[in-house]
Design a protein around this nucleic acid. Structure first.
Length: 366
DNA sequence: TTAGGGTTAG
């Protein structure tokens, strides 16, 4: 239930916790996003007595490591797995594959994968998703085909994940083949699968097909709505995107950060400055959602692309927080588009004062 | 009684 503080109070009241209790505690920490706390419990367990960690313990530790953890820490835990002989365990293996993927060390992930005698569907998924997250979409598709050759049947989690790769490649041919598989094996009723399918069709330029998938869904959640709103917006169909937003509210669903990102993006593509301002205001005041970098980027682009460069500049200066370089980058693109080299110089200076994002400046001509 | 992979935000 996310009450890790309460859980640890109960745990600390137990006289001699057994291995299962230690594992439950460590896993609970990771589940709630406190992987570092889990590590403290793990160290306590090792120094406290005679209890030895097992596969559950390592899975809990590894899956609890956040993106922000260091690779060295992950490798240290991997080393302990090897020493304890749990590296061949399927669950431990797939969490290691996934961990290295999250750190963007896909070669290390592949190394672990190859060391396993009989990788199961989940381990294959971890690897395929890893390639996709590393931007190696072709490899993700290649390994997806290899998996199919082994006779294993992709499940809903893997399908949702592989559709991301086909979407990024704009490979509607593969996407449609996977759609066929979805229909044959009855995965259409899975919200996650259909939401991913909508996104794939939209990103491949077929928002009409995405809409058809959306309309045929028996159940929809906020992610499904976000997918279709974003797809409509990308194709310049802002008014339909806003109609969908109305439907979200009528259905009693709770819009989230992504919903507003998608709506703001729709405004950008359609050049709707006033609607953009209004939805940005409602996001904060009516729905109590704090604006994030991507929201600011959209507002800056909205103003900037309409030629309101000074207003966009003042908008950024008015932010009462450290400004992400992506926001300055957005304004820089707009300066480029409007040939305002004077403001571009000032913006570039601001970028250098902060930490310019890698590759951000190379794409702009002064 | 404790475990692994996951969809939307261009």
């Amino acid at each position: 239930m996310g009450l890790v503080g309460e859980a640890s109070k109960v745990f600390c009241g137990v006289f001699k916790p057994d291995l299962v209790l230690w594992n439950a505690m460590i896993s609970g920490c990771g589940y709630c996003g406190f992987g570092d706390k889990g590590l403290l419990f793990f160290n306590e367990m090792r120094h406290n007595g005679s209890i030895k960690p097992d596969g559950y313990t390592f899975v809990a530790l590894i899956s609890g490591l956040a993106n922000s953890s260091s690779l060295e820490l992950g490798q240290g835990i991997h080393g302990l797995c090897l020493k304890s002989g749990f590296d061949c365990n399927d669950h431990v293996g797939s969490s290691l594959v996934s961990m290295y993927s999250r750190f963007s060390y896909i070669n290390l992930a592949y190394g672990v994968f190859r060391s396993l005698c009989q990788p199961d569907l989940v381990t294959w998924s971890a690897l395929i998703t890893g390639f996709s997250q590393a931007g190696e979409y072709d490899k993700a598709l290649l390994f997806y085909r290899n998996l199919n050759l082994t006779g294993k049947r992709p499940d809903s989690v893997l399908i949702a994940s592989i559709l991301v790769a086909t979407a990024q490649l704009s490979n509607v041919w593969s996407g449609a083949q996977i759609h066929g598989y979805i229909v044959r094996y009855g995965f259409e009723s899975h919200v996650m699968v259909s939401s991913s399918l909508i996104d794939m069709y939209s990103k491949c330029g077929f928002v009409g097909l995405g809409l058809r998938v959306f309309e045929n869904m028996p159940n929809r959640n906020i992610v499904s709505y976000n997918s279709i709103i974003s797809g409509l917006g990308l194709h310049g169909l802002a008014s339909q995107a806003f109609d969908m937003f109305t439907e979200v509210l009528e259905k009693g669903l709770k819009p989230d950060e992504s919903t507003f990102s998608a709506l703001l993006c729709a405004c950008c593509h359609a050049g709707l400055i006033e609607d953009g301002r209004e939805i940005f205001r409602r996001m904060k005041e009516e729905f109590w959602i704090q604006a994030r970098t991507e929201h600011y980027v959209h507002i800056v682009k909205l103003l900037g692309m309409a030629g309101e460069l000074d207003e966009a500049y003042n908008f950024i200066l008015s932010l009462k927080q450290p400004v992400d370089s992506g926001i300055w980058g957005a304004l820089l693109s707009c300066c480029d588009a409007h040939g305002d080299s004077e403001l571009a110089e000032i913006v570039a200076q601001q970028l250098f004062d902060g930490e310019p994002r890698k590759g951000c400046l190379q794409s702009h001509a002064f």
